[in-house]
Amino acid sequence: MIEVRGLSKDFHVHKKQAGLWGSLRSLVKRETVVKHAVKSADFHVGEGEILGLVGANGAGKTTLVKMLAGIIHPSGGDARVRGHRPWERPRDFQRQIALIMGQKAQLWWDLPAADCFLLLKEIYQIPERQYRETLDLLTGMLGIQSELNIQIRRLSLGERMKMELIAALLHSPRVVFLDEPTIGLDLTAQRAIREFILEYRQRERPAMLLTSHYMEDIERLCERILIIREGEIVFDGPLAEVMRTHARHKVVSVQLKPGAPRPDLARLLGRGLDLTVLEETPERLRVQAPRDEIPQLAGRLVTELEVHDLAVEELDIGTVIEGLLHSRQGAA
């Protein structure tokens, strides 16, 4: 459904010095810098698949999505979405895609949602019966029938996002781009949106590309992720693979018996092990260690301390990815 080959995008950004002198100078001469927003991206997304796009702010996620939705032209490379070059914007392509941007309202601010949907019905030339059925289905799934006649600008953020989702899916697109669909929403609304996306995927099986800063979105929705760092894709694979290849540490948690003597950590841990103490209280100790040193560490702790309980945990996925995003070596 989506095939991307060597896709890249450079932006020429004007720089301006601060202050009055900087403003005067920029009237005559402007300095331009080239920002490589996306560098030679290669990947594919299949039918019914939700691909997660993970990266820090400014990593190039939204630029990639904008290119694939046909909003901006690439500087190099090629991409096909349902067999079309997105930036050529043929009508057949436009009828098969949808883009939802959590940070930018796409509905008409002054109109009630019902009017916006009618306008979209005309734009996509959706037959009356199909329109009614889809609208009933989507409003039912999101539980938002009673808000249809309220102006968009008077809706809460969560309600507005639900309306944006309905608007984007009314024409039953085969490819859906979701750019931060849960940003700024409370936990209940986030959960509702996630459940809706999963149910919709199950029912319609479109290809979906999701960007999000919330790891729960990624964990719950995506089997496969792309990690993008400074415009470059540094990982493409199943979520579990990230843990296997990049989570080189584990955490040992120890619950001490009540009244147990305080451990001498310097003596206990300082003998040839590469350890980081994450938490230390009179009753509890949490230590991060390389995977292959875990058995030795656990044995030492059990032998030398009065242990009530001991557990070995994986690092959470967010920490692993964060480590990957901020380390050039790609190790967490």
Binding site: G70, I71, R89, L99, K104, Q106, I123
Partner: peptide, 11 residues
């Protein structure tokens, strides 16, 4: 950037 949504529509 308001132009973006119109570039998505088949109109």
């Amino acid at each position: 950037g308001g132009l973006s949504r119109y570039l998505l529509y088949p109109v």
